[in-house]
Amino acid sequence: MEAVSNFLASDLFYRFRKSPVAVLAFIVTALLVLSALFAPWIAPQNPFDPGSLNLMNGFSEPGKPNQFTGETFMLGTDDQGRDVFSTILYGLRISLFVGFSAVMFAMVLGSVLGLIAGYTGGRTDTIIMRIADIQLTFPAILVALLIFGIAKGITPPSYRDEVAIWVLILAIGLSDWVQFARVVRGATLVERNKEYVQAAKLIGRKPMAIMLKHILPNTLGPVLVIATISLALAIIAEATLSFLGVGAPPTQPSLGTLIRIGQGFLFSGEYWILLYPAGTLLALALSVNLLGDWLRDALNPKLK
């Protein structure tokens, strides 16, 4: 309770209230996340349970009764008769899950490596940061494709669909750790020389304790900002991979998979199969990104 009231009284919350863009972005993000979380309860059907599908419902136009069955679908149906609204809700679930997990993975990996590089310095620092530099010279999506390809090569075909999501998380996470490492290393270099760290060294605290208890909490601000912006990028990366057909399998389609499926129908007139998932992806990525931008400005008043 105290934490909540503290937050409501904080400068951060005040700045948030004063920024209409941030409030709007937050509402859109929250709506999308909540509907993804409660998809099984909100969605009119489970689009991936073949039993609940009726092929006769295929290609229903949005908001109009189907010519064969008379059923109405808010956002229409695809060729299999799947409700597009439901597929979007389930797709959001996958997209958000992959994006969120990938960012968490990248954040933990990057922060740990950045902390070690910044605190230890010397050769360890050089090795970690050179790897990061080299990785930065390749486009992230290429790195993800490469990791995905390798993972595909070493998993037996029967497991591929099961592990596809985890491989996706690994691939996106590994392509994204560098910026966390750089930010945390930079902050660590600043904090390392502050006198509170010297005071801890003086009493013989081990480097591990100093890094985790003293330095890490003071680097969390920028990490949070990067994490939010990365979330938008990770969701787009996931969509890109899935669109290219190397991401989420058709049995667990994400928004990217839906877009790939939908583009086949664009020129035959069934625009809704593409348009609504694409619109959702755009809204999600944009609102998360705006939220990240706002957070960056709010936590760093000097930029204003």
């Binding site: 006198e195 509170y196 010297q198 801890a200 003086l202 003293h214 909490p217 003071n218």
Partner: peptide, 29 residues
């Protein structure tokens, strides 16, 4: 032995409560 530093702003970890700051040497040593 102990040390008192120059900057009262940089010498206390901003994320720690004062009681934890003071207790740290006692606990660690």
């Amino acid at each position: 032995f102990q040390m008192i530093f120059q900057s009262p702003y940089a010498s206390l970890n901003p994320r720690w409560k004062v009681a934890d700051v003071i207790a740290e040497p006692m606990i660690v040593l």
